[in-house]
Design a protein around this nucleic acid. Structure first.
Lengths: 195, 195
DNA sequence: TGTTTAATTGACTGGTCAATCAATAATGAC
DNA sequence: GTCATTATTGATTGACCAGTCAATTAAACA
């Protein structure tokens, strides 16, 4: 029965929206359920408890991000194009829409104490790192793993800053900064090679 | 009377510790007061409400960080030494001790909705950026402001990763990654100059 | 010492909320 | 249409908590 799938989807969407509006994880399940157009009991019926509901929402966000990356990578051939695809997907508008930002921030908080959240976060870290290394290697050689760690952290750091800067609505400059960092890495690598 | 100063200090320290242990901002003022060895009422008497208490704690953390940076800068002469001082202070052990990590994460969450938290965060951003530009300029010239933005975001991103990675206890590798990024920036700048 | 003033207490209130569960409605099988 | 199964409700419970305030204690001072 697709009923359950639809309800779960609705509840997850409502969770993200609600967290986005209040900014915190301390939204009530009642509010979320109301927004989804169901009774509070149903949220517990499908997800068990509040934390599980939030983690399901976070999993959905991470899945969307993964899909976006994969789609972007599909149309990219060269390493440089693939890196551009990763950067583009990382700062896609969907990453800033609705409650995605608020969800991420609260996800970080939860990752301190929830094993499942920590697991999910580590998964995201590994995926991003492995994607970056794969496409940096042809450009930077042995420096690739280190550069990938830097770029991954930079992506997170820039996201954080743009997400938390009140006036910043347009994410384009964020991606631009990562591109500039990549250019710097390539310039440094080239200089090292010719030395 | 120094009594009030002492009590405020105790309450702030207890707040940071308590947040550190639970990981969240949803600690009760009662628990904090108990840890500080006073009654719940006193916390409200001195700080007004819970948010003000947390913001006072965050201000204390930011002040400590500022002191640390200033002290490190005092013993540094060359731009390179000063940059090293900033990096060292940014990953000082005190930044990972007690509830500093948890406080920072919850601070980010709060910055979405609290004007005062957003103000404090912007202040931190400005200070760091201005320090970095000041000492990057002699090394990188016009590239300094851009490189400073990258380095600032990188510091935040790396802090985030190290703070949230379960097994990482030692912050030394974190600082090392920022140093490597700085070296990359310098190498790229040198290459650009000779071109 | 007695008196004023400041510091501190902790019981209390009003409200909130996660989670439960018994009851009801919808769905589908035969 | 009857019955069984599944989906859904929403009232309820029990616990918790921010913030208040009247009462108490300690400090300061004359």
């Amino acid at each position: 029965m697709g009923k359950e799938v639809q309800r779960r989807r609705d509840l997850i969407a409502a969770t993200i929206r609600e967290i986005g509006e209040t900014g915190t994880l301390s939204v009530t399940v009642g509010k979320i359920a109301k927004r989804a157009g169901v009774s509070p009991g149903l949220a517990f019926h499908y997800f068990g408890d509040k934390e599980a509901l939030f983690l399901a929402a976070m999993r959905a966000i991470l899945r969307d991000y993964g899909d976006e990356v994969r789609a972007a990578l599909a149309g990219a051939d060269t390493p440089a194009e693939r890196l551009e695809a990763i950067i583009g997907a990382s700062f896609a508008e969907s990453h800033f829409r609705d409650g995605a930002v608020a969800a991420w921030l609260n996800f970080y908080v939860l990752a301190q104490t929830s094993d499942e959240a920590a697991r999910l976060l580590a998964l995201y870290h590994r995926r991003l790192h492995s994607n970056l290394v794969h496409d940096l290697r042809p450009l930077l050689g042995n420096e690739a793993p280190c550069a990938a760690r830097r770029m991954a952290a930079l992506i997170d750091g820039i996201y954080l800053r743009f997400a938390l800067t009140r006036d910043a609505v347009d994410a384009a400059p964020a991606a631009e900064e990562v591109r500039a960092a990549l250019a710097t890495e390539r310039a440094a690598a080239e200089a090292a090679q010719s030395a």
